[in-house]
Write a protein that binds this DNA or RNA. Structure first.
Lengths: 217, 217, 217, 217
DNA sequence: TATGAATGAGCCTTCATTCAT
DNA sequence: GATGAATGAAGGCTCATTCAT
């Protein structure tokens, strides 16, 4: 079953950490506030108040405010995204890919839900990506790794079948990600209360399928 | 001639304002620093130093640091983008649109160059868009307006000719923008020193054309 | 046998106290850290870590950090110094004082060794003396008491023999202490790795003897 | 006329600095508070309040609290002490040295007055010397330099005349300083309200003369 | 009794903003 | 108008001290 909620992974990541309940509350509160107000405009006093903890406790585990941010972002890069990718891939391999259209539809639907379910986390991540080129580079490496895994054979198969264009997998993914983000990011930023996921999925799928399927000679 | 450098528009916008030379220097310095370090991490002392102006002068025209940011962003929304859009449209209308492929190729090439030439400004804008949903909404209205202008007939014509899919103009633009940003944003953020504009243009055009052209029945 | 190491006295003082092993470790660690970094710059966490004890334990016996310092200094004033003085005096009385020169030489050699052997303790003491006039006053009373003891007769005898100048014993001691500290304190503060005790003793003795012996009419 | 008040030199040093009145007030207030309560126990708020200045102003010139301390101590080492030494030497050379006794008496009287007049400054200096071996080393170099100047010939002359012992000038100075500090430091630390300068001078002079004059064969 | 997580007052420092010159 | 010294509110962070386990 594809995991659609980063929180579950984030919670799992927290659970297997050696952090106390209060320190987990600190990370939760920080995540919420960073998403709402941004990193700079969030004070350690804000965090302590929301986490129902003293300011001293905030600094028991994390030596600086920056380290709190790192503690939130690091699992995203090293655990949440790879694991989400793995589960995504597992689902892909579980069901035999019958056609390019089904493949694209699945990806799009899955990733749009993923994005909409985790608006808060994505907002923090995107904000930091803008400030921090290194972070984007790390994220790029995660994607590269995903493309080296089982998804590679799926794409190769679709290309051999003459369904998928013979472009590099990286390029194909770039187009997919761009198109999905073209719908998801405006929703996250604005934010739009009740997006029509079905319509969005249909539109994105339709466009991507047209753009990526092999034209018959 | 399409204007490819926001600076020229920004300068023109400054020129016809009633700001003194020093005030303009303040805005220029602020733009540079906001792009480099972000709004919050830029101090008014930084601005004054780079603008070769006293801190007092910074506050002569702008009552708060936020007003400086507004003074930078507002022209983007109300002047720079509309005017850039107008010039873009003028160019479009000047040359009769012969085919969808030529149309897409022109847009993509033009906008990629626009993005790459104005990395600094775009970075500030994107950062603020993330913090400020209202800004994105305003920008959306600008796009709506553009779509109501001469470009509307061009798109209509392409659709009547059976070249362009019969989707809403907004949706078509969303796909174009997403695809172009999928190439431009990573370059701006990382930043990549010497992007291969020709290759990028070719790839984006190829994908967009495939995705947007009317399939023969 | 003259005791040359305050640690032995300090340990003895600890041994006959009702402090637990851990409490003693707290005092030992505090002494070391106060000497190295000063009282203010030593944190209770530092102390707990070096004493291999929890922070809570530090506060079991001592209600405040200041009380730890008091617990270290108090024995110096009331026990270590008087006892050191007593042993010094015992040694003096054990061997009949044959001449002023021998007397001075013995004192100087003994006290220089005392100072050099207990650099750590002296540094803490001197630092606190500067902050705390009362402490110096208490120390002065200890010296007064010493001068009232057996040493009084020794000095009187040397004065009656016409060897020692007829100054007050307090004044004589002041000159001796000043001269010895003039050599010892720079070594403690700098710190000088390998002081030439023989040379120092010779120089201080030579000067003090010249300054304190009775000039023949 | 020998300058007996460091304040005058300190003020002169401030006057020829480019510090504003308020920033001089910061240094003055800091000096007073550091002497009263020690460096660590003095808060920047204390300083601002006593200097009748905002906390921001405290940090206009000095980037850290430590730099305030440095700004106070540095002139002592590089200016106040050397200049005081120069004036002292000038006075020495102005009046021909008739005898060792007069020489010692002059030095002792002069330095005791110097010390008693500048108790506040000396207390801060001594406290820092204990924490900072490097500072003591720098001070030692200042003394070395003094001993290389005009005072050298005075001492040489007294030694040639057979009045002064043939010890190294450094050693002679060490004994003089020790003896004077033996009287001055207790007064500074305790503090003693109304010291009998005449008596102190007489005692120190008598002892030093006895200790340093050449014994007839 | 011993622990160490938790507290919160208060510190040093920054920086947007003001205002006398 | 221009300057930059001065302001002071507020932020990040430390650390002596407490207390539930």
């Amino acid at each position: 079953m594809t995991l659609k909620n980063i929180d579950q992974l984030f919670q799992a990541s927290l659970a297997q950490s050696d952090l106390s309940e209060k320190q987990k509350a600190v990370l939760q509160a920080s995540l919420t506030l960073f998403a709402e107000k941004g990193f700079e405009r969030t004070t350690t006093r804000d965090i302590a108040t929301l986490a129902q903890v003293s300011e001293g406790t905030v600094y028991k585990q994390f030596k600086t405010k920056q380290q709190i941010l790192d503690a939130i972002l690091q699992p995203f890069i090293t655990q949440v995204f790879p694991q989400a990718a793995n589960e995504f891939i597992a689902e892909l391999t579980a069901r035999p890919v019958t056609s390019l259209h089904a493949f694209i539809q699945f990806i799009v639907y899955d990733r749009i839900n993923f994005g909409l379910t985790n608006q808060k986390q994505l907002k923090v991540l995107v904000q930091q990506l803008l400030d921090n080129g290194r972070l984007l580079a790390e994220l790029g490496q995660v994607f590269d790794k995903v493309l080296q895994g089982p998804i590679k054979s799926t794409l190769n198969q679709l290309q051999r079948q003459g369904e998928l264009v013979n472009w590099s997998h990286a390029r194909i993914f770039r187009h997919i990600i761009s198109t999905v983000l073209g719908y998801v990011l405006p929703i996250i930023i604005l934010p739009i209360a009740d997006p029509d996921v079905e319509k969005i999925t249909a539109e994105a799928t339709e466009f991507l399928y047209a753009g990526l399927h092999q034209k018959k000679a």
